[in-house]
Amino acid sequence: MEQQPVSALQAQALKRKEKLKALRERQLQGRDQAEGEPDCKRAAAAEEVETEDRHRDLKLRNYTPEDEELKERQVPKAKPASVEDKVKDQLEAANPEPVIEEVDLANLAPRKPDWDLKRDVAKKLEKLEKRTQKAIAELIRERLKGSETELAGAVGAVAEEEADSD
């Protein structure tokens, strides 16, 4: 990059300022023509805009002005925050308050690893349990039928022995 002499840089800055001024005037003229203001009011408005632009960014932090208008622009002295208050706030933020005051122990107890398998198989086990009960009842009936004949024979044998012994 070539370094230009200071005077050339100043000349470019002046050209930019002139272009910006011309642009502002065109914008103001466009607004004013739409509103129908006379030329003298437009000029006064342009001056007000320029002075507002100059003073809009003016904030006096370290300088105490003597002028009353500038004293209004003075920023009040900043008071440093207490370190103790900041530390207390951080400590309070670090200690979260308990969300649940009463704890249900049943919900905290861990589930057994096969709880989902038992849940899925429960319906099938109910059907099998019914079938098993029916099968057991049927087996008992068959034994009772078989034991009735044996029981009748046993009773008859006992009766014969008693008759023989009498």
Rank of each mutant, 00 (worst) to 15 (best):
H55A: 06
A152C: 09
E129K: 08
L14C: 11
R61T: 11
E25G: 07
A78D: 06
V121E: 13
R26Y: 04
A163S: 10
D114Q: 02
R61Y: 10
E102P: 03
D57M: 07
L28W: 00
A157F: 06
Q12G: 12
R143D: 15
I136F: 00
E150I: 13
S147M: 06
E129P: 01
T149W: 02
E25D: 14
K77D: 11
A137E: 12
R26P: 00
E2R: 10
E129R: 01
L125G: 00
Q12N: 07
D120K: 04
G30I: 05
I100F: 12
L117N: 07
Q4C: 05
D166C: 10
E68H: 09
Y63R: 05
L117H: 01
Q33R: 03
A94D: 04
A135G: 11
K79E: 12
K145S: 10
D166A: 08
P65E: 07
G30W: 09
P110Q: 13
Q33C: 08
K112M: 14
K15C: 07
D32R: 00
E50T: 10
P80S: 08
Q133A: 05
Q27V: 09
L58Y: 01
T132E: 00
K77S: 14
E25P: 03
L105W: 05
V103Q: 15
D57K: 03
R61K: 11
K71P: 02
R16M: 09
N62S: 12
G153P: 00
L128P: 00
D116L: 13
V103P: 06
E148R: 12
I140R: 04
A8W: 11
L144M: 15
E84G: 01
A43I: 09
Q74P: 06
D164V: 15
A154M: 07
H55W: 13
E160C: 04
P98I: 13
R119V: 12
R42G: 03
K145P: 05
G146T: 10
L28C: 00
E37W: 12
I140D: 04
D57Q: 12
E142N: 12
A94V: 00
E69I: 10
K17Q: 15
Y63W: 07
D164W: 08
P96M: 05
M1Y: 05
E97I: 15
E92R: 15
K79R: 04
R141A: 14
V99K: 13
K124W: 06
E92L: 15
